[in-house]
Amino acid sequence: LGPKYVGLWDFKSRTDEELSFRAGDVFHVARKEEQWWWATLLDEAGGAVAQGYVPHNYLAERE
């Protein structure tokens, strides 16, 4: 699936296409579209919880 990303700060969605998340949440990014990335929010087991657009500057690649 490629690298995983972690949320740096809490983010509250403003549209139906955006995905709310908390700092520390883990994502798989499917598409990078300039300022907004289409991402899947993952649970602790790595299963998909939700999908939506997230601001790229709120995520960091997980080491």
Rank of each mutant, 00 (worst) to 15 (best):
49 V>K: 09
33 E>W: 09
19 L>T: 01
46 G>E: 06
22 R>L: 09
60 A>T: 11
50 A>W: 06
15 T>I: 08
42 L>Q: 02
50 A>I: 06
42 L>K: 00
21 F>Q: 00
45 A>V: 11
38 W>P: 00
52 G>E: 01
35 Q>I: 11
53 Y>I: 05
49 V>C: 06
10 D>F: 11
6 V>Q: 04
22 R>C: 11
56 H>P: 13
26 V>G: 04
44 E>K: 10
56 H>W: 14
24 G>L: 04
26 V>S: 08
15 T>N: 13
21 F>A: 00
16 D>T: 10
48 A>E: 13
48 A>K: 07
1 L>I: 12
7 G>R: 00
59 L>Y: 04
48 A>L: 09
22 R>M: 10
39 A>M: 03
26 V>N: 07
4 K>E: 13
5 Y>D: 01
34 E>L: 10
2 G>W: 14
43 D>A: 03
34 E>I: 09
49 V>G: 04
24 G>R: 02
3 P>L: 11
55 P>Q: 04
3 P>E: 09
30 A>P: 03
6 V>E: 05
7 G>F: 07
9 W>N: 05
48 A>Q: 10
11 F>E: 02
49 V>W: 05
23 A>R: 11
29 V>M: 01
44 E>N: 10
22 R>I: 07
28 H>I: 15
3 P>M: 12
13 S>C: 08
45 A>L: 12
52 G>V: 04
38 W>Q: 02
37 W>V: 05
33 E>K: 07
32 K>I: 06
63 E>I: 13
34 E>K: 11
39 A>P: 00
61 E>T: 10
21 F>W: 01
36 W>V: 07
39 A>Y: 04
62 R>S: 14
34 E>G: 15
46 G>N: 06
44 E>T: 09
44 E>R: 08
26 V>F: 11
7 G>Y: 05
16 D>G: 11
43 D>G: 05
43 D>W: 07
8 L>V: 07
48 A>V: 12
3 P>N: 10
48 A>Y: 10
44 E>G: 10
42 L>Y: 06
20 S>E: 05
37 W>M: 03
18 E>M: 13
35 Q>G: 13
58 Y>A: 10
31 R>V: 09
16 D>A: 14
44 E>Q: 10
18 E>N: 07
29 V>W: 05
53 Y>M: 08
50 A>H: 05
5 Y>G: 01
60 A>L: 10
38 W>T: 01
53 Y>E: 00
33 E>G: 14
10 D>Q: 07
54 V>E: 02
14 R>C: 12
55 P>A: 04
5 Y>Q: 03
56 H>F: 13
47 G>P: 02
44 E>C: 11
34 E>T: 11
34 E>S: 13
6 V>N: 02
40 T>M: 11
6 V>W: 06
60 A>E: 12
31 R>F: 12
49 V>N: 04
27 F>E: 00
59 L>M: 05
15 T>M: 08
9 W>I: 09
33 E>D: 10
9 W>Y: 14
54 V>L: 04
41 L>C: 04
14 R>N: 13
45 A>E: 13
56 H>Q: 11
61 E>Q: 11
50 A>S: 08
52 G>H: 01
53 Y>S: 03
38 W>I: 06
13 S>E: 02
53 Y>P: 01
29 V>N: 01
42 L>F: 06
57 N>I: 07
60 A>F: 09
6 V>A: 03
55 P>H: 07
10 D>W: 08
17 E>N: 14
49 V>S: 06
20 S>Y: 05
50 A>M: 09
16 D>W: 08
62 R>T: 14
12 K>Q: 15
62 R>I: 15
20 S>H: 02
55 P>R: 07
18 E>I: 10
7 G>D: 04
11 F>C: 07
11 F>Y: 15
46 G>L: 06
57 N>T: 09
28 H>E: 12
27 F>I: 04
45 A>R: 13
23 A>F: 03
45 A>Y: 14
2 G>L: 14
58 Y>M: 07
32 K>E: 04
8 L>A: 03
3 P>S: 10
17 E>R: 13
19 L>Y: 04
63 E>W: 12
55 P>E: 05
31 R>D: 05
63 E>K: 12
56 H>K: 14
51 Q>Y: 09
4 K>L: 15
22 R>H: 11
19 L>P: 01
1 L>F: 13
48 A>C: 09
34 E>P: 11
41 L>R: 06
61 E>G: 05
11 F>P: 02
52 G>D: 01
1 L>M: 13
11 F>D: 01
24 G>T: 02
19 L>K: 00
